[in-house]
């Protein structure tokens, strides 16, 4: 039961979005008509069983992949109509991504990794160094700036990756199971980083997770199943429900 909102100030508007893989009898319907509005400044958790289409949706939102049909509007721009070059210009700048695994480039230092999206954006080196250091500081990993990814723990590396995502000041931060490869303790640290980031910068965040504990930190939980939106719950609503009948529901893992 997707919440229908007539709010035109929605940052993301997704209408009837489908993505199929392959052709003929082997066709896989990864997304079957997704409708979603995400407001500016929201922190949304995207949940659902394995294979439900979460990563596929994130890839479309992140402009890593093109939808088969439907529209995706970011701000007021129709993303499905952009050329490859226009998409590249939004990637890493307006839309940033944090991956499940550690996706730092192994042969660049933390600082160089964080500067990378800004150097593709052709920012001056002084500007990008400045922004990179600020982002590293915000995530409490500025002391690692000269280290290579192999010299960091998983949690540290993921926080550097988050710094890299937010340094250019994106409107939308997408994270696909960012704690999936981490142990609980570093996972918590990374999650706290997302939360404080959300509070301090007000950036819109969509985070995919299997972990109900992680989901609890979001303001809104969208559950997918088999390429459909199964439920879309605001945390206030859910907290009330939580009070009414004890073990919380609406969370799959």
């Amino acid at each position: 039961m997707a919440i229908e909102r007539a709010d035109t100030s929605a940052l993301i508007q997704v209408k009837d979005l489908s993505r199929t893989y392959g052709e003929g009898p082997a066709t896989v319907h990864a997304l079957r008509g997704i409708n979603l509005d995400i407001q500016k400044g929201e922190m949304v958790a995207l949940m659902g069983p394995s294979g439900s289409g979460k990563s596929t949706l994130m890839n479309v939102l992140g402009l890593f992949d093109r939808a088969t049909s439907g529209t995706y509007t970011l701000g007021s721009q129709d993303m499905t109509r952009l050329t490859g070059r226009q998409q590249a210009n939004l990637r890493g700048r307006r839309i940033a991504f944090v991956f499940q695994g550690i996706h730092l480039l192994p042969r660049l230092t933390a600082l160089a990794n964080v500067e990378l999206p800004m150097s593709y954006a052709r920012m001056s080196s002084a500007q990008r160094k400045d922004a990179a250091l600020k982002a590293l500081q915000l995530l409490g990993v500025d002391h690692l700036k000269d280290r290579y990814p192999s010299q960091m723990s998983g949690g540290q590396a993921q926080r550097v990756a988050i710094a890299r995502a937010i340094a250019p000041g994106p409107d939308l931060l997408l994270a696909d199971e960012p704690t999936g490869a981490l142990d609980r303790k570093s996972g918590t640290l990374v999650l706290e980083a997302f939360q404080s980031l959300h509070q301090e910068t007000g950036v819109t965040i969509v985070i995919v997770t299997h972990d109900p504990y992680v989901a609890q930190h979001a303001e809104r939980i969208i559950a997918l199943e088999d390429g459909h939106v199964l439920s879309d719950t605001r945390v206030e609503d859910r907290l009330i429900a939580h009070h009414e009948d004890e073990p919380s529901k609406g969370e799959q893992s």
């Binding site: 890593f64 991504f97 480039l105 999206p117 593709y120 954006a121």
Partner: peptide, 9 residues
């Protein structure tokens, strides 16, 4: 990764 970070073709 590079393309995800905004590298153009």
């Amino acid at each position: 990764i590079r393309k995800a970070l905004g590298a153009r073709d």
